[in-house]
C-alpha cells in the first residue's frame, strides 16, 4: 500500500519524523519548532490594522514583534501539510461536530463552535503565559532538557486530563 495515501501511520514513525524535523529546524534555521507565538504575532498584526503603528509599542509586542517570521511560516506550513496529507489519503472532510463531542454535548454546531472558541481562548492565553505550547515546550523544549519545558509539558497534560475527565468522562 502506498504510504502517502494511507490514512494513519505508526505513531512511532510519525514521532521519529517529527523528531527529525526538530533537528532540521535546529541545524538549518537555528530555531526550535513551536507554534503559539505565531498566534500572538498574528493578533498583533490584526491590532495594527485597527490601532496603527502604536500597537507595536505594547510591551508584549516589543518582545514578539507583530510580523511574519519563521514560526509564523511554520504554522502556515502545518495547515498546508495537513491539507496535502488528508487529500492524499481521502480523509479530508468538512467536520463541525466531532464524534466524542457529540456524545457528550449533542450535535448542535453552534454549541461546538462556541466551545471551540472558548477552548482556543484558554489555549492562546495559557500558552503565552506558560511561554510555549505542546510543540514549543512539549517537543522542542523537552528535547533540550529544559526544566521549564518538562514542567509545562506535565501541567498541559494534568490540566488536559482533569478537564477531559470532568467534561467528557462523566465523573
Amino acid at each position: 500500500m502506498n504510504p502517502l495515501t494511507s490514512e494513519l501511520w505508526s505513531p512511532y514513525l510519525v514521532g521519529f519524523g517529527i523528531g527529525v524535523l526538530v533537528w532540521v529546524g535546529f541545524l538549518l534555521s537555528n530555531k526550535a519548532i513551536g507554534c503559539s507565538t505565531a498566534y500572538a504575532r498574528s493578533f498583533g498584526m490584526l491590532e495594527k490594522l485597527v490601532g496603527g503603528k502604536e500597537v507595536e509599542d505594547k510591551p508584549y509586542y516589543k518582545k514578539f514583534v507583530p510580523k511574519i517570521d519563521w514560526e509564523w511560516m511554520l504554522v502556515l506550513g502545518v495547515v498546508i501539510g495537513a491539507l496535502i496529507s488528508s487529500i492524499l489519503s481521502g480523509s479530508f472532510k468538512v467536520e463541525t461536530v466531532p464524534q466524542v463531542w457529540d456524545r457528550t454535548f449533542g450535535s448542535s454546531p453552534i454549541l461546538r463552535l462556541v466551545g471551540a472558541f472558548i477552548g482556543g481562548l484558554l489555549l492562546g492565553f495559557g500558552a503565552r503565559m506558560a511561554g510555549g505550547c505542546t510543540s514549543g515546550h512539549g517537543i522542542s523544549g523537552t528535547s533540550q532538557l529544559s526544566l521549564g519545558s518538562w514542567l509545562a509539558f506535565i501541567f498541559f497534560f494534568v490540566g488536559g486530563i482533569l478537564t477531559a475527565l470532568l467534561i467528557y468522562g462523566g465523573i
Partner: peptide
C-alpha cells in the same frame, strides 16, 4: 508555567486540539 499550563490544559481538552 504551572498556572498557564493548567489553563492551556483546560483549553486543550475543550478545543480537543492544541495550537
Amino acid at each position: 508555567i504551572i498556572i498557564g499550563g493548567l489553563i492551556f490544559g483546560a483549553g486543550f481538552a475543550i478545543l480537543g486540539l492544541c495550537p
